[in-house]
Computed example of a mutant assay.
Amino acid sequence: MKQTIRFAVAVLCLSLLSVATAVPQDQYTEGGVTRVTLIRILPGHFNAFMEDLKANVKPIWEAEKKAGLIENYSIFLNTTRANPEDWDIGFSLSYKNFAALDGLAQKVLDLRMQQYGDKSKEQQVIDKRVQNARVIASILTRDITLK
């Protein structure tokens, strides 16, 4: 008798668990994917960072957008810093879906080489960039639409 009751309780718990995990999947539809990167600019390096962003990064994002690799990009400032180590500027790159990330590194490599010419010139720009800022966080998010 006790074994039957235990079995019934176990089946009930498993049933409730499967319902609980199934319900959230029906609460929204999945949409695009966005990479959000938050950056702290080192003191005294704001102008150098912005010049690098305009001269080297933005043209690559524009080329990615034109090639259909990204849907859009956005650059934003943190106007409510919580502490001196908080981020100053951020950017987001929006993709149609997770499939858009497949093979992305190789596709973007071609665009980067068009921008820089070769890997050694790109490395020189990256080495200089590291003197201006630090990445605080890089987060991959997914848009959802509530049902």
Rank of each mutant, 00 (worst) to 15 (best):
C13I: 08
L109P: 04
G68P: 03
K107Q: 09
L38E: 08
L146A: 09
Q25G: 14
E85K: 11
F98W: 06
V125S: 13
T80K: 11
S138E: 10
I144E: 01
A67Y: 01
D26Y: 09
G90F: 02
D86C: 00
V36S: 06
V36K: 04
A100P: 07
I75E: 00
A48K: 06
I5S: 14
Y116W: 10
A100C: 04
V9H: 10
N97Q: 04
F46R: 10
S94I: 11
D127Y: 07
A99S: 12
I41D: 03
A20M: 14
L16Q: 04
F76Y: 04
L17Q: 12
H45T: 15
A100Y: 03
K54S: 06
P43E: 02
L69D: 00
T4R: 15
D88C: 05
N56W: 03
V36M: 08
E122F: 02
K119R: 14
T37S: 03
A67C: 01
N97D: 14
V23I: 14
V11A: 12
N47L: 12
D110L: 11
S138Q: 07
L16P: 01
Q131A: 14
A105I: 11
D127Q: 13
V9K: 09
K2G: 08
L93N: 07
S74G: 08
R35H: 12
V23S: 07
S138T: 11
E85N: 13
Q114Y: 07
M50A: 08
D118A: 01
E71A: 01
A137V: 00
S92Q: 03
V36G: 04
G32D: 07
M1N: 15
R6I: 05
I60G: 09
Q131E: 12
L77F: 00
T80G: 13
F76A: 00
L53H: 04
T37F: 02
S120F: 05
R142G: 03
Q27S: 10
N97W: 04
E62F: 08
Q25F: 15
L53M: 13
S74R: 02
K58A: 15
G44F: 00
L69G: 01
I5W: 15
T37M: 06
V33W: 02
R81L: 06
R129C: 14
K66D: 10
I41N: 02
N47D: 10
S74I: 00
Q114M: 09
S15G: 13
S92D: 00
L69Q: 01
Q131P: 03
A20G: 11
R112Q: 14
F76E: 00
Y73L: 06
E64H: 06
E51M: 09
D52N: 11
A8I: 08
P43F: 02
F91E: 01
K96E: 10
P24Q: 04
G117S: 03
A133G: 08
I139L: 08
I126Q: 12
A99C: 06
F49P: 01
P43C: 03
A100D: 06
S18Q: 15
N47Y: 12
N83C: 14
S92N: 05
A8G: 12
W61Y: 11
L16A: 06
E30I: 15
K119W: 13
Y73H: 11
D127W: 10
K96G: 00
Y73R: 06
A133M: 15
K65D: 07
F49S: 02
G90K: 01
E62Y: 07
A67H: 01
A10V: 09
K107H: 03
A55Q: 13
Q27R: 10
N72I: 01
A99Y: 10
